[in-house]
Design a protein around this nucleic acid. Sequence first.
DNA 1: TACATTTGCTAAACACTGTTTAGTATATTC
DNA 2: GAATATACTAAACAGTGTTTAGCAAATGTA
Lengths: 204, 204
Amino acid sequence: MAIKERKEREKQDMRNLIIESATQLFLKHGYDKTSIRNIAEDIEYSPATIYLYFKDKDEIFYVIHENAFDLLVKLFREHDTISNPYERLGAIGRTYINFAFENPDYYDLMFIMRAPLSQIKHEERWNAGECAFGYVLDTLTQCLDQNLIRPADKYITAVSVWSFVHGLVSLYIRERMCILEMPDDVVRDIVNASFENFLQSLKT
Amino acid sequence: MAIKERKEREKQDMRNLIIESATQLFLKHGYDKTSIRNIAEDIEYSPATIYLYFKDKDEIFYVIHENAFDLLVKLFREHDTISNPYERLGAIGRTYINFAFENPDYYDLMFIMRAPLSQIKHEERWNAGECAFGYVLDTLTQCLDQNLIRPADKYITAVSVWSFVHGLVSLYIRERMCILEMPDDVVRDIVNASFENFLQSLKT
DNA sequence: TACATTTGCTAAACACTGTTTAGTATATTC
DNA sequence: GAATATACTAAACAGTGTTTAGCAAATGTA
């Protein structure tokens, strides 16, 4: 009975079609203007059809959020070849900040928005987040083991590093860096310099 | 012609009534459930009346956002008596984190949400934000002048301190600290410990 | 006081939003 | 070929922010 398999395939194709359209609209026009009706019109189906493939709007954005994490972790993994964990930590941080600057909407969805949260709670674990955080935690553990950074609790250090870079880029993305009253490129330079400065301060 | 003055007074009273109702609804049920219609019903006027006193919903939340800043700055000012700027910096940081924990909705509106931004752009300056940031900047400048913290650019240090605490509390408020898979009070302890650790690392 | 004007307010509508329901064609199975 | 299951949609529901047109009462002028 190959029909069942074909139907399963078609179901996945339809889900992909919806996600592709939603992602495109999201990156082009932002979250608010990516309505179910807009997606429906884009893929030339009725709005009700989308609810046959996704429970609600949040589930669609949970999938987009997961795809964005795949992209970030892929970028992280490119630093696997850096053997010195302290050097690797720096590279990861720079990649993280760069990712946020180049994909502000993705970053927003991953680390700021409440949209994918209902799904995360439903699954009881934030798999995508754990994967990325785990990568930093591993690198940090190696730094501590090799005495490359000042000794401190592993989790406190990890939370500190993550909070620092998240603070920098989220204040930038949600337009609070405007208090500096400096041009955009100068603000970015300050963000980058702040990270380098912080990284130095971690050193033994 | 005292009528004109009375009318002006009545106009302000109505604005206050709307803000009070909106604030109460916002703190009780959150931003999304604070609709113009809900506010209108609460104050027993029609929804259209609200638009005679405020340009749009964003303007209402801009005023609430300003009031929240007044509250935070007032808390900051309580540390004016601490003569040692490094000690004062620590006290400000603890107050900031505490404020975020105790008033997450206010914090969200002040530093995360996009809602009051259109108004901020309209005024071309983020007065409320500048006031709070300026207070930190002053304290930090004194720390640098008195050689109490490691020498670095004033703005880079200010952005670093602010980003660090904002990162901590915004990850907590927007529920990303769930990756730690620890109870809420433990997470708060980690946040507090991370700040104390960071504060230490600033020392000369 | 009598009329004209301004002010304060609202009912209703407009253009959206996410989501659900009931019903209709088409595809599949027996 | 008839019965069943699947895929899809039109329309509605309940909500959102915001605008428009009109009405009644307060105010200004004669």
